[in-house]
C-alpha cells in the first residue's frame, strides 16, 4: 500500500476512534475544558453573526415587516388585556390558596441566561447558554423563554456553559394537556421538522386552536408552562390514539435570552 494512502487510512481510523470516544462520552472532560476557553469567543461570534444576519434579514424582508408590525401591535394589545385579566385571577388565586392554607403552586426560581450558540448541523436541536456548574445549573433542568414558554431542558453542564436540548429535536418529551378540552398526551419534536402532541386516546376531544400546557406529571417541567397551539389533528382508522401537530409560540432557534428553572 502506498505511503500517502496508508496515512489517510490511519487518519480515517483515528477519526473513527474519535467518533467512538465522543459517542461514549470519553471526551466530555476535555471538550468541557475547551468550551470554557471558547465561551467568550463563541459569544462574540454569535453576537456579530446575529447583528449581521439581522441587518441582512431586515433588508430582505423590509416589505413584509410593516405588515408584521401592525399584526404584532394588535396581538400585543390583546395579550396586554389578557395579562391584566390573568393578573387579577392570580391575585385572587393567591388569596384563595392562602385562605385554604395550600402550598404555592410553583417552587421554582429563574436564572436568566444568554444564548451563545445554536446548532447548525440540521440533525441536533440544541442551544448553548452562558450559565453552567458555577451557577448551580443541574442537568435536566427545565428551560423556558418569555416568562413561561417551554424551550427544552439542560442536557449537559460545563463549568460556565450548558447545552440545552430543544423541544423541537425529539429528545425532549413533555407531558401535556390541552387547556380548552383537557386532552392529555405527550409533546415531542420530530427532527426539527414538526412538533407532535400524541398518545391521546380517541375518546378524548382535541380541536384545532387548543392551547397546550405542561401537566408537571413528567417531573421535569412544572405545570402550566405554555407549549404551543394545535394546528391540525390526525386520527387513523382503527387507531387507539390520535395525534396533532403543534405550532410553537416562539422560534426556538432565534432566542437570545432564556431562563433556567431551579428548584428553590
Amino acid at each position: 500500500m502506498p505511503r500517502p494512502r496508508f496515512r489517510v487510512l490511519l487518519g480515517m481510523v483515528g477519526v473513527g476512534l474519535v467518533i467512538l470516544a465522543l459517542h461514549d462520552g470519553w471526551l466530555n472532560g476535555p471538550l468541557g475544558l475547551a468550551r470554557v476557553g471558547f465561551a467568550p469567543v463563541e459569544w462574540s461570534i454569535t453576537n456579530v453573526g446575529e447583528t449581521v444576519g439581522g441587518v441582512v434579514w431586515s433588508f430582505l424582508r423590509v416589505g413584509t415587516l410593516s405588515r408584521r408590525v401592525r399584526t404584532l401591535e394588535e396581538e400585543l394589545a390583546r395579550l396586554r388585556a389578557e395579562q391584566a385579566r390573568e393578573a387579577s385571577l392570580q391575585q385572587e388565586n393567591a388569596e384563595l390558596r392562602q385562605a385554604l392554607r395550600l402550598l404555592p403552586r410553583t417552587r421554582f426560581r429563574h436564572v436568566a441566561a444568554d444564548v451563545t450558540g445554536v446548532s447548525t448541523d440540521g440533525a441536533s436541536a440544541v442551544l448553548r447558554i452562558n450559565r453552567g456548574a458555577n451557577d448551580r445549573i443541574p442537568t435536566d433542568a427545565a428551560v423556558i423563554a418569555a416568562d413561561g414558554v417551554v424551550v427544552g431542558h439542560v442536557s449537559s453542564v460545563q463549568t460556565s456553559t450548558a447545552t440545552v436540548e430543544l423541544l423541537t429535536g425529539g429528545k425532549v418529551r413533555v407531558a401535556a394537556r390541552a387547556l380548552d378540552t383537557g386532552a392529555e398526551g405527550i409533546v415531542h419534536g420530530v427532527r426539527g421538522l414538526d412538533v407532535i402532541f400524541d398518545g391521546i386516546p380517541r375518546t378524548q376531544t382535541l380541536r384545532v386552536g387548543d392551547r397546550l400546557v405542561t401537566t408537571g406529571l413528567d417531573g421535569n417541567f412544572p405545570p402550566y408552562l405554555l407549549l404551543g397551539t394545535v394546528v391540525s389533528v390526525r386520527a387513523l382508522e382503527n387507531a387507539i390514539f390520535q395525534e396533532a401537530s403543534v405550532q410553537l409560540p416562539l422560534d426556538l432557534h432565534r432566542l437570545k435570552v432564556v431562563a433556567v428553572l431551579l428548584e428553590s
Binding site: L22, T116, V118
Partner: peptide, 18 residues
Amino acid sequence: GEAASGLPGGTILAALVA
C-alpha cells in the same frame, strides 16, 4: 464549528475531519 454551533456530541467535528 463545534464551539460556535453548540453541538453536544461533536459528531460534526469528526465528520468535518473525515
